[in-house]
Design a binder for these strands. Structure first.
Length: 555
RNA sequence: GCGCCUGUAGCUCAGCUGGAUAGAGCAACGGACUUCUAAUCCGUAGGUCGCAGGUUCGAAUCCUGCCAGGCGUACCA
């Protein structure tokens, strides 16, 4: 429609020039936008204002001339000049009716877009160390990553969701030691448990489990091997738990990628060697350094410490090289905001390995500020005091938790009040949107019971021209805007755009519902309205699906 | 000190690829259920868009400088 208006305007400029009404036939880059207020039409353009310089005339004068040459076609009801020189277009209702047909026809695909051009994109998120259960903070990253993946996929990208498992290095050894010491304690040995070990009660559970499995002889085994065994055992158990928690949070991954596998296949060493050969890595004071400074980082970074152990950065370099080798055009990492200092060096390694800067993007999710009854509630993984994602899902449900995490831009910190979240009351916006879906289902059920309206599974809209109420036209316009909302969300990588859209659609529907009856005495009007609400129902469902929230038939 | 994010109604936040009277939810106040689910709706009230400059016909939106808050600034992960 916007292109249509642009064409009409170009036409008007040309005709006005030919008739000698305008000194130039040039038209600068113009905007066609949807005004905030209904009184300003369906579309407005600033063509007169931006042409003032070229035409050497006041904007309003230009607007008057153009309007005289605009051919009001069937789709345009009226054209007005307003304010400093805006030209406002009021469209006829006919423009909006076909959207219902499109929704009913495309169903679950309505709103899908092809802007992604099938480009291969990888979204990596959560990637929490398997040293303890996921906590609330991970939940936000999980919700964001999963939804961004869904939205990109819906927008025509070829998306793969991946979880990177840090199953190598010091924290895993610490995990093994922690479990081992608990094992010894459980067999009656009086051993101190150091602060540097993981304190959570789950460590005790794991110790009991491995003791049960291995038997008492386990404690007499070689200690180094036993600690190793504990580490493997615990990491596997914890990872299983993480998978389970994510699954009940509605989050699934296409691939779980092991850090250890990068060492086993020699990829880490290969990456170091390759960069060393290009003098991107050099030795200094017994350690190996990457020249990230050459790529805009504030200082160079260590990849191999002087004790011979590699840093996280080393395997991350190899990991990201591997991602592109798998054929991804874009790689998106979802990180907690406390890792933002890591972006520069990661970018450096990506660019150094021959990729362009825009092939690597980091979604920085600001931290979740945990509150309890309005008061700050400090969590500490080390001390074993934290609220797990599982706790939250068990208490408030997957839908409410996900909706809350996605309600705001991840650029802002999120206050998560445990007391508030655990209340299953009407304050929670998820019910506001889900209620629309349930309400419409109720209407359709009722319509089905009416003998005259047995067949309500319309494959296209019926008698749509009878939809003339302001609320109905408004709903149609919102439904038509869903696709561009998806595209905006995909382009900006911001899922909350979908949230905001769903809230406006829900609000428009509730208002309509309270003012008009869908099922009336007039059969044709009823069928028209049923078509409309069926469309609303499908769009609500599609939007919720992108956020990973269910659309209940009943509430 | 430097870097990233944020600063909009009493509270929590949308709006930020510049547009015409800055929006929503909660909280406050007043209304609407013999009706397709009141987990809803309608109305009232509430704002120097952190501050100061700049660019522009036009700035919450872009630029600069301040101020405030969060996070980060390891041969930790």
């Amino acid at each position: 429609m916007k292109n249509e208006i642009k064409r009409i305007l170009l036409d008007a400029v040309r005709k006005a020039f030919e008739k000698g009404m305008l000194p130039s036939d040039k038209m600068p880059e113009i905007e066609i936008e949807e005004p905030r207020h209904l009184s300003q039409g369906d579309y407005a353009t600033n063509v007169a204002m931006v042409s003032a310089a070229v035409q050497k005339m006041p904007p309003r004068k230009i607007a008057e001339i153009l309007v005289a040459f605009i051919e009001t076609e069937r789709l345009i009801e009226t054209v007005e000049i307003a304010g400093p020189g805006f030209i406002n277009f009021f469209l006829s209702n006919d423009v909006w009716y076909p959207v219902v047909d499109r929704i009913l026809e495309q169903d679950k695909q309505y709103g899908a877009s092809d802007i992604g051009q099938n480009a291969k994109v990888q979204v990596e998120f959560v990637s929490a160390n398997p040293t303890g259960p996921l906590h609330v903070g991970h939940g936000r990253g999980a919700a964001v990553g999963d939804s961004v993946g869904n939205i990109l996929s819906f927008a025509g990208f070829d998306v793969q969701k991946e979880y990177y498992i840090n199953d190598s290095g010091r924290q895993i050894r610490t995990l093994g030691t922690s479990v081992w010491l608990r094992v010894l304690q459980q067999t009656g040995q009086d051993i101190a448990f150091p602060d540097t070990c993981y304190q959570g009660a789950y460590i005790n559970d794991l110790a009991a489990q491995i003791l049960e499995q291995e038997g008492y002889s386990f404690v007499q085994a070689d200690e180094a091997a036993a600690i190793d065994r504990c580490a493997m055992f615990a990491a596997k158990k914890i990872l299983d738990g993480i998978k389970e928690d994510l699954s009940s949070f509605g989050v699934t991954f296409d691939q779980w990628f092991s850090e250890q596998s990068l060492y086993d296949s020699g990829r880490v060493q290969k990456a170091i060697d390759a960069f060393t050969a290009r003098d991107l890595i050099y030795e200094h004071e017994g350690a190996l350094w990457f020249r990230t400074q050459d790529y805009g980082d504030e200082k160079n970074r260590v990849v191999v410490r002087n004790n011979g152990l590699t840093t996280y950065f080393a395997s991350d370099i190899a990991y990201h090289m591997e991602k592109y080798e798998r054929g991804f055009d874009r790689v998106i990492d979802v990180w907690g905001a406390d890792h933002h200092g890591y972006i520069k060096r990661m970018e450096a390694s990506v660019v150094a390995s021959g990729r362009t800067r825009d092939q690597f993007e980091v979604i920085l999710v600001q931290l979740v500020n945990l509150l309890r009854g309005g008061k700050p509630f400090q969590m500490s993984t080390r001390a074993g005091e934290f609220v797990t994602l599982k706790d939250i899902v068990d208490e408030v449900g997957k839908d409410a938790a996900r909706f809350m995490f996605l309600s705001r831009s991840y650029d802002s910190g999120l206050d998560f009040d445990l007391e508030l979240a655990k209340q299953k009351n009407a304050d929670n916006p998820v019910y506001y949107v889900q209620y629309v879906h349930a309400r419409i289902t109720g209407i359709l059920l009722k319509a089905k019971q009416e003998t005259l309206l047995r067949d309500i599974d319309f494959s296209r809209g019926e008698h749509l021209e009878l939809l003339t109420a302001a609320e109905e036209i408004n709903l149609l316009k919102l439904l038509a805007a869903f696709k561009e909302t998806v595209e905006k969300s995909a382009t900006t990588l911001h899922p909350h755009v979908i949230f905001t859209y769903l809230m406006s659609l829900a609000s428009a529907f509730h208002g309509y519902y309270n003012k008009h009856k869908v099922i009336t005495e007039e059969k044709d009007l009823t069928r028209a309205r049923l078509s409309l609400v069926l469309g609303v129902k499908k769009v609500i469902r599609n939007g919720l699906m992108l956020l990973g929230v269910s659309a209940p038939e009943r509430m």
